[in-house]
């Protein structure tokens, strides 16, 4: 326990390319870019499914299918298949990002379509009846009303990504996971536990920040 504390408070462990700061920034970079790509794919798709009701069955079964694949297995499979075809220095990073994106899509997608689906049909009907165009109904009523569930989906995607980005350290990409994996390799338990502590704190802070943003963005009228 004391060793863990010593490791965490030693200034030397915080600086440099394998220092905590750099690893933290890497971890955030991987997570943020995967989430951004996943959101770009899943949100429009989810809104479309929720709005039209089409493709719901496909989306649900796909999401459930992906959920039952162990993320570690997915990571290794994608890596072994993709890495030989990538000839830059990112041969490990790109497959890892791909896996993170794949894992982040189902919860974001589910949040988006479930959010739009549960919008009060009367509000939608009233909006149409008052002369809002289909586009205005989507952006001014459906999306704002769907925000609580969309945030829910995005937050679980974020947790999933932060956690899996840690595991991705196994395939020699950076991020805080390095401390866990390297600590294990060097039998340095204080480094391992210190790193684990940092990842745990990161996950909780990311969720707290997103919860804060949610409070700011979601209309108070939608809180029960």
């Amino acid at each position: 326990m004391i060793d863990v504390w010593t490791w965490l408070t030693s200034g030397a462990n915080w600086v440099g390319t394998d220092g905590i700061w750099h690893r933290l920034v890497q971890h955030l970079e991987y997570s943020a870019s995967s989430l951004a790509i996943a959101a770009l794919i899943a949100i429009p798709l989810g809104l479309w499914i929720g709005h039209t009701g089409r493709g719901r069955v496909v989306a649900v079964s796909l999401a459930n299918g992906i959920r039952s694949i162990p993320s570690l297995g997915l990571l290794f499979i994608v890596l072994l298949i993709l890495a030989p075809h990538i000839h830059s220095g990112d041969a490990f990073l790109i497959p890892s990002i791909v896996v993170l994106v794949v894992l982040a899509i189902p919860p974001i997608l589910a949040g988006a379509y479930a959010g739009v689906e549960q919008v009060d049909p009367a509000a939608r009907d009233a909006g149409r009846g008052m002369g809002l165009t289909a586009w205005q109904v989507l952006w001014r009523i459906e999306v704002p009303c769907a925000l609580p569930l969309m945030f829910g989906g995005f937050r679980s995607a974020a947790l999933q990504v932060v956690a899996t980005a840690t595991i991705a350290a196994t395939v020699s990409v950076g991020g805080l996971g390095r401390f866990l994996i390297d600590g294990l390799a060097y039998r340095d338990y204080s480094m391992m536990a210190g790193g684990a502590l940092l990842v745990g704190l990161l996950a909780i802070s990311v969720d707290a920040v997103l919860a804060g943003v949610q409070r700011l963005v979601v209309s108070p009228g939608l809180r029960s």
Binding site: A122, A123, R124
Partner: peptide, 23 residues
């Protein structure tokens, strides 16, 4: 045009259909 036609006609429905996000 549907949208501009509807803006000139008041519409009230059973469940009120108020927008929950707006005051």
């Amino acid at each position: 045009d549907a949208a501009s036609l509807r803006r000139g006609i008041g519409y009230v429905i059973q469940q009120a259909g108020l927008f929950p996000l707006r005051s």
